[in-house]
């Protein structure tokens, strides 16, 4: 009995002191050992400080620049557009922005060596991105128009819910 009690007390004391179960400590420690093992090799270079900037900077730029930027654009969109239209802009804009984000070096022609290394034309990516963006918006507009027509045909209280319903 006393043994069970003291074991329970020890468990409580541990939880209060540490904040989680012992499994958490075990897993996190094992993970951090591996992080250090690989991380020290990652930093074993003349430019190790630049590598630190890149790793920490990637997280900071994401949290403090990228997220506020797209959140602000989205807020602007919601302020400008009627609620039932917002998503018809959100969808193509997001897809287009992600294409731009991933392929930015090629689209912006920032890669000097691309043509010399592949013998492929470098000026096609910007054109393709603009055309793709236009196509995405056109598709979205077509879907919006189709849905508006169907809603009108179904009449009030038809298969589709009211215009303020989120889609």
């Amino acid at each position: 009995m006393t043994n069970t009690h003291s074991a329970q007390n020890a468990g409580l004391w541990w939880r209060r002191w540490y904040g989680a179960g012992p499994g958490h400590l075990l897993l996190t420690t094992a993970s951090l050992v591996l992080v250090c093992y690989a991380g020290l090799r990652l930093l074993d270079a003349d430019e190790w400080m630049t590598v630190v900037y890149w790793v920490v900077g990637a997280a900071l730029v994401h949290d403090l620049v990228l997220v506020p930027l797209y959140a602000a654009i989205d807020r602007g969109l919601r302020a400008l557009l009627a609620p039932h239209l917002v998503n018809y802009v959100r969808w193509p804009a997001t897809a287009s922005a992600l294409l731009l984000l991933v392929w930015f070096p090629l689209i912006s022609r920032a890669v000097d060596r691309y043509e010399r290394a592949t013998l492929l034309p470098a000026d096609v990516f910007l054109v393709r991105w603009l055309l793709m963006t236009a196509a995405l918006f056109a598709l979205s507009l077509a879907v919006a128009a189709l849905r508006a027509v169907r809603r009108r045909r179904a009449g009030p209280g038809g298969v589709n819910a009211g215009p303020t319903e989120p889609r």
Binding site: A45, W54, P105, V111, Y114
Partner: peptide
Amino acid sequence: QLDYVFPG
């Protein structure tokens, strides 16, 4: 993308 701007 052959954009070798990373450090190393």
